[in-house]
């Protein structure tokens, strides 16, 4: 069974997912960070594939991406690093990034390699639904990868239902109209959006991301969804903490 499906089958709330950018703070830190996250009790991880022009990201992840690229990270290098990851890490792993580097790698080759190393899902926010369906869905399904779509406060109910019918794994619920790391809290205006989506009775689990940075925002998000994703706050900790191995445990304990 796909590890994402398995996770949501056995756990329906307070799922903590962490995002970080591969190749940052150092080129070879990726697998160590994953091991540390698993032993700290994180439920799922999104590994960012750095891109030169990350237009949905705020300054923290932009900076991490540019450092990672400077360190020599690429999809090819990342998938090589992950070759043996399943001997060390058992939680669900997703790759998240922008469509252009994946197109250059080759979408089918990418899906095949992801499946070989034990990746469970992929998030490509700038791959539109219609092009996914026409050209790429077949590869993701063939290699048993979950393709995760985003919804935002501006996404209509009809479109959310369409995304739900096309989705598997979970739906990534962007908490507010923003780039990543732009807000550090959940405002009351967002609550009506959370309640609206919760009320739609979707078949897929919901995981809230963007603006989740600490225990308070994590708990608040989890009261409307099955779990939440922390990205910028975690990446910022990695950037700012010299001893990030120690920092990961502290960070996760501070949230859970």
């Amino acid at each position: 069974m796909n590890r994402i499906d398995n996770l949501f089958k056995h756990k329906s709330n307070n799922i903590l997912s962490i995002y970080f950018t591969a190749g940052h703070p150092t080129l070879t830190s990726t697998v160590d960070i994953l091991s540390e996250l698993e032993s700290s009790g994180v439920d799922m991880v999104e590994i960012g594939m750095p891109f030169s022009d990350p237009l949905a990201d705020g300054p923290v992840i932009q900076d991490a991406s540019s450092k990672a690229l400077g360190n020599g990270m690429s999809i090819k290098v990342l998938l090589e690093q992950l070759q043996d990851v399943r001997s060390k890490v058992t939680i669900p792993l997703l790759l998240m990034g922008y469509i252009n580097p994946v197109l250059q790698y080759g979408v089918e080759a990418f899906c095949k390699k992801c499946s070989e190393v034990g990746i469970d899902g992929v998030i490509l926010p700038d791959l539109p639904m219609n092009i996914y369906q026409e050209s790429f869905q077949k590869y993701f399904e063939q290699y048993n990868l979950r393709f995760i779509f985003l919804i935002t406060p501006q996404t209509s109910d009809d479109r959310i239902r369409m995304i739900d019918s096309l989705s598997s794994g979970f739906i990534y619920m962007v908490s507010s109209a923003s780039t990543t790391g732009a807000k550090a809290e959940i405002e009351s205006s967002q609550v009506s959006y959370f309640e609206r989506v919760k009320g739609l009775g979707l078949k897929n689990p919901l995981v809230i991301g963007f603006g989740i940075s600490n225990r308070e925002t994590f708990n608040r998000a989890c009261s409307y969804a099955n779990g939440a994703i922390i990205g910028s706050a975690f990446v910022k900790m990695l950037t700012e903490t010299g001893d990030w191995k120690d920092g990961i445990g502290k960070f996760v304990r501070g949230v859970k």
Partner: peptide, 20 residues
Amino acid sequence: ENGFYGEFGGAYIPEMLFAN
């Protein structure tokens, strides 16, 4: 209708820009 000139064009945008 999807914004393509041959194979070029389209709208490769994140969901955050979709409504606009």
